[in-house]
Design a protein around this nucleic acid. Structure first.
Length: 213
DNA sequence: GACCAGGCACATC
DNA sequence: GATGTGCATGGT
């Protein structure tokens, strides 16, 4: 199994090359992006981020002080904008009350403790927490998303019904515990998922993983 | 118009 | 623990 998981990674890496993730200009932007792109196309999340940049409020302090009503209008293109406003505000409250809005302080906490703390913030679930840990803070947390499950269950490497934690364990058991690898693997899976492993009509015939068992 | 997109919380059984 | 539902915009 371990060999298969690594082989699949190598195949993706050959096909697509390094993905240079997360596509953002700062760690803080990664955190905001993690919340804004929840169950939304990346493009819509990007538009919302673009609005925050346009209005020059994409910093922790400015977002913390920004009125919720205004924030909601800025992030509207991301969808679920009222919920996401609450979620961003909940993270910022946590971030300032516990870490003085300082990313360095945040990243000094050990992975598992910090993961627990992030999960306790309303609106941050396992995928957002792991995205923040991996892509904003450089910690070895493997990110599981809809694409990951779809791709691996279609290749019969995991069951379709497995939980988030079980899927993450699967990768922990079959991969070296390396930030670089976790980063690149998840990014490649998203690339594959977007382009080939579509929900309804998968493009398996053209997929770089065809014949992969 | 239907379906989908890089989730999550909450209610209910 | 599993299953269902609300949240919303924008692209195909």
């Amino acid at each position: 199994m371990r060999r298969k998981v690594i082989l699949l990674y190598q195949k993706l890496h050959r096909a697509f090359g390094p993905q240079h993730w997360w596509p953002a200009e700062s760690s803080f932007e990664v955190i905001v992006g993690a919340i804004l792109t929840q169950s939304t196309s990346w493009k819509n999340g990007e538009k919302a981020i673009g609005n925050l940049k346009k209005h020059k409020v994409l910093t922790a302090k400015k977002l913390y002080r920004l009125k919720s009503r205004k924030l909601a209008t800025y992030i509207r293109p991301a969808g679920y904008y009222n919920i996401k406003t609450k979620r961003l505000k909940a993270f910022l409250k946590f971030f300032f009350e516990k870490y003085r809005g300082n990313l360095k302080r945040l990243s000094q906490k050990p992975l598992l403790i910090l993961r627990q703390e992030l999960l306790a913030v309303n609106g941050i679930g396992p995928e957002s927490a792991d995205s923040i840990l991996l892509y904003a803070l450089g910690k070895p947390a493997f990110v599981v998303d809809a694409y990951t499950k779809r791709i691996f269950s279609r290749h019969r490497l995991i069951k379709e019904s497995v939980s988030y934690d079980e899927t993450q364990d699967f990768f922990r058991q079959n991969l070296k515990n390396e930030v670089k690898l976790f980063n690149e693997y998840h990014a490649l899976l998203v690339k594959l998922g977007k382009d080939y492993c579509l929900k309804r009509i998968p493009r398996c015939a053209e997929c770089p993983l065809k014949n992969q068992k």
